[in-house]
Design a protein around this nucleic acid. Structure first.
Lengths: 227, 227
DNA sequence: TGCTTTCGCTACGAGTCGTAGCGTAATGCC
DNA sequence: GGCATTACGCTACGACTCGTAGCGAAAGCA
């Protein structure tokens, strides 16, 4: 989590229960106060620990909130729903459900904002939040390629760039919808999003059905503009 | 900008020069200090005005930064480049150039985070930043429909939802790429993004050319494959 | 029993916040 | 020109948060 236990064999061990209580109290404070009015002294009182204990474990507010928010993303997974479109919709709905929680909304964007001027914090976010999400994209893509819904990628470098692109498009769209447009990423929205992501803008006017078009592997076939 | 001049005919008018100086000083402070270490007292000194003047014009740090950041988006426009793909790439590159500036990076996300718990602030952001961006999507879409690259939308309600979706996908992807992944949205990335947005994921494995393929609809004109 | 590390508690200087009060400057109206 | 009205600069203030230091007690291990 925050700091390792490098080689400290002896001495009184840190209370694991205090860790859990502090992170839970941080999330509760995020809900009730938001980022800007959250103070470490308040979190300490809520968690039932001394303020100095907080400073002994975390460098500051930023690092604490990153860890508190990161736990929210533990539940993310890629359920095999049988098709790429269904897999995407499932994951996006999970992601949207997390972002619907107020502790995620106010905490996540704030630490990302702080990370623009803090390289170490950015790395911490990447390791404990972003990479975990990106792994979902990798898993879903591999599964789709095994099904033949996506062409297999030979060039490893290009494949990495493609995964990064997909990740930014999926996560970015959900975050923007939820936090900037401030409207729910409900099933209807996710359905439309998935259709555009898979088939492109030209199909945006097509009726409600026919989202994915599992297209035979290597053939760079074009998605048909239906309607 | 911040407050109207309801009916105040008489009295000493507010200095417009002070407004400009304050907003410029705010952006400068964002660059040098970032969001969390930016104080209104510091901004006042940089702008050469009294701290009380700041509080007379803005309710607080949030509102001030929104106005300061909003000015960065004034330059956005949709240059007619002849095809939907080229138009998208142009706008996205403009948007990316703004987000590359440190005052936008640290300021924008911070106020969005604060807005999750402040309805009035969210409305202020929407009015002075988001709506301006969304208008670009509307303009580009209308132009593409006039060219025949996109099918005309009859249902006004569905059209509005589609525009919202496109907007969240475009803005969200660029913001996520720039601020979360912390990598530049350069021409190569924008090119790949535009291809996926227009043609869908299935075309992601195709070679570097052939971005958009507007299919039929109403006599589809083909945009030139650039590069 | 000793050694080591953590914990709770108190206290502290430094810094920021947002506001009040006062005298002065700039404008419109008569 | 005189008057009312509003904006401005300046100072000072209480309230709050920050992050740290110091101390004695508690909880592990040899």
């Amino acid at each position: 989590m925050q700091s390792r236990t490098p080689a400290s064999r002896t001495g009184r061990p840190r209370s694991a229960a205090a860790d859990a209580a502090i992170l839970a109290a941080t999330r509760q404070a995020l809900v009730e106060l938001g980022w800007s009015k959250l103070t470490l002294g308040d979190v300490a009182i809520r968690a039932g620990v001394a303020k100095t204990t907080l400073y002994r474990r975390w460098a500051g507010k930023n690092e604490l909130v990153v860890d508190a928010v990161a736990e929210l993303f533990d539940e993310l997974c890629v359920p095999d729903r049988g098709s790429l479109a269904a897999d995407i919709e499932g994951v996006v709905l999970q992601f949207a459900a997390i972002l619907a929680r107020p502790e995620a909304r106010s905490g996540l964007m704030a630490v990302v904002a702080e990370a623009t001027r803090d390289e170490a914090l950015r790395e911490r976010i990447r390791a404990s939040i972003v990479d975990r999400q990106k792994r979902l994209v990798l898993a879903g893509r591999a599964r789709a390629q095994a099904r033949g819904e996506l062409p297999a990628e030979t060039d490893a470098d290009r494949a990495a760039r493609t995964v990064d692109l997909i990740f930014d498009m999926v996560a970015g769209a959900v975050v923007h919808r939820t936090l900037v447009s401030a409207e729910p990423a409900d099933e209807e929205w996710v359905h439309g999003f998935t259709r555009v992501l898979l088939s492109g803008l030209a199909s945006a006017g097509s009726p409600d059905r026919a989202p994915a078009r599992p297209r035979s592997a290597a053939g760079g076939e074009l998605p048909s503009a239906r309607r």
